[in-house]
Nucleic acid binder design. Structure first.
Lengths: 230, 230
DNA sequence: TCAAAAGTGTTTCGGGTACACCCATGT
DNA sequence: ACATGGGTGTACCCGAAACACTTTTGA
């Protein structure tokens, strides 16, 4: 048996599952493939890793090419590498997941090999190319998990936001309604929000106070070993 | 700018951080490199991915080559791919972490490029080759996290085990003592343990009852949406 | 009878959840 | 005055944590 048999040819793709809350619905950005294989099928945006490019840098580049925007959260998800997953040959897909703040989610012009880009409600996804259905499921599971146990949730919302907006983002991801009073108590009780003096009109009624996520306070608490469960 | 510039040469390694509890200490299996680069330095066991080999299959193969054993738990950790991390060229390392049950942890004969293999207490690690120090830190963090929030802990213990053995495994990983009564209440309260009729002598005193992890009960509860926090 | 480890209940505390009304604003 | 969304407090429940003694076994 040939030990350490060298692989004939290996490529690495970096794919990014991009989530955002749009009109109170958790949405994911997909691109329609303009070239084979799977031409005409929807896929998770991504592309091949370049020489001398770090993995996270590649993910940020793809994200920027697809959306023109910068993510408020970006994290590696997992690597998918089943031998038959890409008909062109052996391709490892290093997957990331990204959050965009609500509001910055105009339908972007497609870049690269994509014929079209569009946002889809996560509950109404088309069949995806390659093994991207699996990747998406994994990403969604991870997002929900992290939303409940970490502070990623603040990445779904603009820099300044009302508590109602934040709550709606949580509800959109988790798919269930939360109690307004309990939600506010919990989120304010974390001690990582700073109230601003500004307000925002939501509809034609009483204006709501705008809050900011305070990275300083967050770090201070984390250094003391405070956990952040939602 | 050349779009989708093809990489000159890319290889993928699969590395496995192998944990076990030995003599009440959380330990990691390391190999001493017998060839450059980093010859003579300790490293996380691993090797190059083969053609037509799945990622998890490669991890299991490496594990078996290094230890001759089968893991009770194996999960992908993350992929490390900074451009300069391997002086031989661009190498992505798809990392896994594995648990071995206590008892099956004889010091293994080294395989492959390794000159030597040995278990190290996680609190007394030598400097590691490549970026393996980072990989190890990440693995340890993940293990601790999963131990508290999932049922991975049962992978640290033989098929049949006493509650004291299980508690010692938890204490070894988390680095703090737990209350015996609370621990037993919690773990039995999960409803996933089955008492056997057998007993085990621990020292020269009263024998302890042996328990088994019941996969059936676990699945039954998980289907009902029961979470498993430790 | 002693040494060694197994085994067992109760109380207290804090966080989570359920629940309904008044307030500020513009029309 | 009314429509719209913003904002607030209390009671109950359950799981987590603290805490010490009795039992079984073999030497």
């Amino acid at each position: 048996m040939s030990y350490n048999r060298r692989m004939a040819s290996l490529r690495a793709a970096v794919d990014v599952v991009i989530f955002a809350v749009r009109e109170r619905r958790l949405s994911v950005l997909l691109v329609k493939r303009g070239v084979p294989p799977f031409r005409g099928r929807w896929a998770i945006p991504g592309g091949f890793l370049r020489e001398d490019e770090g993995l996270e840098a590649a993910a940020r580049r793809e994200l920027n090419e697809e959306t023109g925007l910068t993510a408020s959260f970006l994290e590696q998800l997992a690597t998918f590498g089943a031998p038959g997953r890409d008909p062109r040959g052996r391709v490892l897909s290093v997957c990331y997941f990204a959050l965009l703040p609500a509001g910055n989610t105009a339908v972007p012009a497609p870049g690269g090999d994509a014929a079209q880009a569009a946002w889809f409600d996560v509950r109404k996804l088309p069949d995806l190319a390659f093994d991207h259905g699996d990747i998406f499921e994994y990403a969604l599971q991870r997002l929900r998990w992290k939303l409940e146990w970490t502070t990623v949730g603040f990445g779904l919302v603009p820099k300044r936001f009302t508590l109602t907006e934040l709550q709606q983002a949580f509800e959109a991801v988790l798919g269930r309604a939360a109690d307004k009073r309990n939600f506010r108590r919990k989120v304010l009780g974390l001690g990582v929000l700073a109230a601003t003096r500004e307000q925002k009109r939501e509809g034609l009624a009483r204006p709501a106070r705008l809050y900011e996520f305070s990275a300083q306070r967050f770090e201070k608490l984390r250094e003391r070993g405070v956990l952040f469960p939602f």
